[in-house]
């Protein structure tokens, strides 16, 4: 895993296509579904993103990957989520003028208050990991949307797993 992570970091500094290759197939599949819902990364955006400025917010969203996913009722970070967050941390460390709001979300299969709390827990888990990777805490805030902002709208597990997520929303002007 450590070795994989090192490779991943090297690749990140190189090209987008390699970075996408570092994604697991499962993650790529979910990213693809997100793109279909108008929300994020995916193979469809790869060609255009290949010409993106690596310091741009769009690059962070599509090439680095702004979203990590969770199991039902869980805020545990999977190995795959940790990889994504390491890439996010690397990018944030390279772009110190940019802050981020981490949004925590839940699927529709819980009660409203519980899902708000669960979203807060997920956002906090992602934030704590980024801080552990060296991002200054002052740059990272969280907000929970509970089940209020689904990206996938069907009512079965194929959509619910896309909605159990934490999204790192980067904002601000990159330092040139």
């Amino acid at each position: 895993m450590t070795r994989f992570n090192l490779v991943s970091r090297l690749i990140l500094a190189a090209t987008l296509s390699a970075a996408l290759a570092a994604c697991s197939s499962d993650e790529a599949a979910r990213g693809g579904a997100d793109a279909a819902a108008g929300a994020g990364a995916g193979a469809g955006g790869a060609t255009a993103a290949g010409q993106l400025d690596p310091g741009s917010i769009e690059y962070f969203r599509t090439a680095v990957g702004d979203t990590v996913w969770f199991d039902t009722d869980s805020a545990a970070l999977s190995a795959e989520a940790q990889q994504t967050l390491r890439r996010q941390a690397d990018w944030l460390l390279r772009n110190p003028g940019i802050n981020a709001v981490i949004e925590g979300h839940a699927d529709e299969r819980g009660t409203r208050d519980y899902n708000l709390a669960l979203g807060a827990r997920r956002a906090t888990a992602a934030r704590n990991f980024l801080i552990g990777e060296g991002v200054a805490p002052e740059r990272l805030t969280t907000v929970s949307y509970g089940k209020e902002r689904p990206v996938a709208l069907c009512s079965d597990e194929s959509c619910w797993r896309q909605n159990r997520r934490a999204v790192t929303v980067a904002a601000g002007a990159p330092l040139s």
């Binding site: 208050d113 807060a120 827990r121 906090t124």
Partner: peptide, 9 residues
């Protein structure tokens, strides 16, 4: 009311 802090509420 509930207050969310540090992952707990």
């Amino acid at each position: 009311l509930s207050l969310a802090r540090g992952g707990d509420s």
